[in-house]
Design a protein around this nucleic acid. Structure first.
Lengths: 208, 208
DNA sequence: TCGTAAACTGAACTGAACTCAGTTGTGGGA
DNA sequence: TCCCACAACTGAGTTCAGTTCAGTTTACGA
C-alpha cells in the first residue's frame, strides 16, 4: 500500500523546472503527448534540448510527473471537499463540485491525464519514471477507494441505494472525468453547467 | 457531414491484412500503442517489417483503421438495438445492453479506442491516415448525435426529464465507455454485471 | 507458359529522443 | 576578494523505431 513518497525537488530560484512543466502541459494538452516534440518544449522555455535532461530523465518522466501532480491535486480536493460533510448526499455533491472547481491549467492537466492513462499500466525501465508511475497508480487507486468509501458510507446509512459500490464509483468517476475529453474553456458549454448536470446525474445514480 | 467513405480494400485469399489487424489489436490492447514495436507485429504475423507497408501506410494508419472499424461496429450496434423500440426508455436500455454485447476482441478494440482518442484531434500528414481520422471523427460525431437524438425523443415524449440532451448524452457515453479502461475479461467483475449496473445508472439519469 | 500485379525483402535512411564529455555561471564560505 | 562546489547548461554524437528504396519472388488468369 505504501509507495515511496515522491519528494518534490527543491526549486532554486533559477530552476526552469516549473517553466518546463508549464510548457509541457500547454503542448501535451493542446497537441497531445506524442505529437509534441520535446525539442519544441525546450525552445519555448528558452534552453537547449539537452538542458531538459537536467530536470527530467525523459519526455515520459515529465509526462508522468504532470499526471502525478494532477492526481495529487484531485485527491486533495476530494478530501478537502468531503472532509466535514456528515451527510453522504451533501458529501457526494461537494465531491462532484470539487472535481470541476479547476483552473484552465488544471483542465489541460486533466486532459493530459485522461489521454495518457494507459501509460500507467506498463512498467517503465528508468527508476524515476517507474517511481512516478507507481505514485500515480497509487493515487488513482486512492481516488477510486475514496469514492468507493463515500458510496459505501451512504449505502450503510441508507442514504444511497445498495449496489456494488466499487463499480458504481468507477462509473461515476468515468462520467465525471470523461468531460475533460471534450470540454474547452472557450466552448459553448460552461464548466458550471457541466458541474450542475453531472452533480445531478451522480445524485440520481445513488438515490434510494 | 459527408466524409469520403472508406472502402475496405478487397481481400485476396493470401492477404495478411486481417492477420496484421488482429496482431496489432492484441499488442496495442495489451501493451499500448506506443509501447508496441511495429516490428513485433510483423514478427507475429510472420512477415518482414517492410511487408507491413504493403497493407498500411504507417503504424498510425493501422491504429486509425482499428479505431474506425470499432466505431463503425459500435454505431451499427446502437442503430440495430434501438431501431424497433418505440418506447424511448426501452430503446435506452437496449442501447446500453448493446454497448456491452461484445467479443473479447471488441473489448481490446474498445480499449484501444479509449486510450487513443486523442489522436483524432490532430490532423495527419498522410492522405490515408487523414481519411481514416476524418472517418473516425465522423463516426464519433454520429454516435454522439444518435444518443443525443434518443434522449431528445424521450424528453419530447415526456418519458425523460428535460435537460441539455447533448451534454447528458456525452456524460452517459463517457460513463459507458469508461468501463473499457479497467474491465478485463478474466477479472472479478463480469461484463453482464457491469451492463446491468450501467443500464440502471442510465435509466436513473433520465428518469422524469 | 507467360505477363502482371500482389506480396514480399534486405539494406539504407530519417528524425526525434537521448547520451556524453565537457563549459559556464552563481551563491556561499574562508 | 578569491575560490570552490554544484546547479545550469551546451554542441556534437549516438540510438533506434519507423520508414523508404530498389528491387525480387510468388500466385494466378489469359
Amino acid at each position: 500500500m505504501k509507495a515511496a513518497k515522491i519528494v518534490e525537488p527543491d526549486e532554486s530560484p533559477r530552476s526552469k523546472r516549473r517553466a518546463i512543466l508549464a510548457a509541457a502541459v500547454k503542448n501535451f494538452g493542446k497537441n497531445g503527448y506524442d505529437a509534441t516534440k520535446w525539442s519544441v518544449v525546450a525552445d519555448q522555455v528558452g534552453i537547449g534540448q539537452t538542458a531538459l535532461y537536467h530536470y527530467f530523465e525523459s519526455k515520459a518522466h515529465c509526462l508522468l510527473t504532470i499526471m502525478r501532480l494532477e492526481l495529487q491535486r484531485s485527491l486533495e480536493m476530494f478530501t478537502k471537499a468531503t472532509a466535514d460533510q456528515p451527510d453522504p448526499m451533501e458529501a457526494l455533491r461537494a465531491a462532484v463540485r470539487s472535481a470541476y472547481a479547476v483552473s484552465e491549467q488544471n483542465v489541460l492537466q486533466m486532459r493530459i491525464l485522461q489521454n495518457n492513462l494507459a501509460i500507467l499500466a506498463v512498467p517503465r525501465n528508468s527508476k524515476k519514471e517507474e517511481a512516478e508511475r507507481l505514485a500515480a497508480r497509487e493515487l488513482v487507486h486512492g481516488i477510486e477507494a475514496a469514492w468507493t468509501e463515500l458510496l459505501e458510507r451512504g449505502m450503510a446509512e441508507g442514504a444511497f441505494a445498495r449496489r456494488d459500490p466499487h463499480t458504481l464509483a468507477l462509473n461515476m468517476l468515468g462520467m465525471i472525468v470523461s468531460v475533460w475529453r471534450w470540454y474547452r474553456p472557450k466552448g459553448l458549454v460552461t464548466l458550471s453547467s457541466v458541474s450542475e448536470l453531472t452533480e445531478d446525474c451522480c445524485v440520481r445514480m445513488v438515490a434510494p
